[in-house]
């Protein structure tokens, strides 16, 4: 790994400079992660009185547990739904804003602020407007003949958390798409126009391929977001219900460990999640490397 051509005389100083970061990392990251690995191999009774070594049994049980398998498919639906909804809305908005010049800044301002809203708050906001008895959207849906109730319908609950999670993430995707669109040389689009390509064709043959790196990057980021940063959305609203319909993996780790006090299973779930994060991070970094090499 690179340093500067000339470096400073070292001694103990670089170690002292790194110490705060390294100490915090060791105590609050590395050690607990190690503990999770260790506990994943143990079974503890709910009162913490006895623990036995069970090897990979926790994992075996996990993958035979219909509730966990359900949680996995729920997570997949949630992550894909959130990613697709948020990215397509953001792309649409970014392309529209990119057409404009004078009002570009104003629209951007109006579209980006939800980034600052906490996922939990986003959840509460959408919970409120979809509230079966006082929310305004169920009122309108009712007129269309649909009885919305996210307290009893798993589909409604899933849609609700997807809306909340996607809504908050539009701002982020929008900014990256807009930056991506603005980095496409105008001359390319003009050349395509001279070659007689219609606006629609110009999008598919020029703009979309050039946006592909941004799109791929955002897909990874959005999946990571939906899988790990949306705990608040679930916890503040559906709490995994109704009937496990929104019990995504990160929520289940918490619920099983903290509420259900099933430490071995929760630790095993942690290990599985870490494996997923590692995989996604590797994908993300390999992709970044490739982009740098362009």
């Amino acid at each position: 790994m690179q340093t500067k051509r000339m470096t400073l005389p070292g001694g103990w100083l670089p170690y002292a400079l790194l110490a705060p970061q390294v100490i915090v990392t060791l105590i609050f990251f590395i050690w607990p992660a190690g503990q999770a690995f260790y506990q994943a191999l143990l079974r503890e009774d709910p009162f913490g009185l006895s623990r036995t070594f069970v090897g990979l049994d926790n994992f075996a049980r996990l993958f035979n547990d219909p509730l966990y398998l359900n949680s996995m498919s729920v997570t997949a639906v949630f992550a894909i739904g959130t990613t697709l909804l948020s990215m397509s809305m953001a792309l649409l908005m970014a392309m529209a804003v990119n057409r404009l010049i004078r009002s570009r800044h104003a629209y951007t301002t109006l579209l980006v602020w939800p980034y600052a809203v906490a996922p939990a708050i986003a959840g509460v906001l959408w919970w409120f407007i979809f509230h079966p008895s006082i929310g305004i959207l169920p009122y309108m849906l009712d007129m269309l003949g649909y009885r919305w109730n996210h307290r009893t319908s798993g589909t409604d609950a899933m849609l609700l958390v997807i809306f909340a999670a996607a809504w908050k993430q539009i701002a982020y995707n929008f900014l990256f798409f807009l930056a991506g669109l603005q980095s496409i040389p105008q001359s390319l689009i003009e050349a395509a126009a001279i070659d007689g390509a219609s606006p629609f064709k110009r999008f598919w043959s020029i703009v979309f391929p050039l946006l592909a790196p941004t799109t791929f990057f955002l897909m990874v980021v959005n999946v990571v977001y939906a899988m790990f940063d949306t705990f608040g959305v679930i916890h503040a609203t559906t709490q995994g219900g109704p009937a496990q319909a929104t019990n995504i993996l990160v929520y289940k780790v918490y619920a099983d460990g903290f509420v259900g006090m099933n430490l071995g299973s929760s630790a095993a779930q942690s290990v599985v999640l870490m494996a997923i994060v590692v995989a996604l991070t590797v994908v993300q970094f390999r992709f970044i490397e490739r982009r740098v090499n362009y």
Binding site: Q21, V22, T25, L26, I27, F28, F29, I30, W31, P32, A33, G34, Q35, A36, Q39, F228, D229, F231, V250, V253, Y254, G257, F258, L263, S266, A267, S270, L273, M274, V277, V278, T281
Partner: peptide, 20 residues
């Protein structure tokens, strides 16, 4: 060592971190 913290969001190691 610092890099690895990227891969360990608090959500995935809730209980041991709480214990620490």
């Amino acid at each position: 060592l610092i890099f690895i913290t990227l891969m360990l969001p608090v959500e995935v190691r809730i209980i041991p971190t709480f214990r620490v």
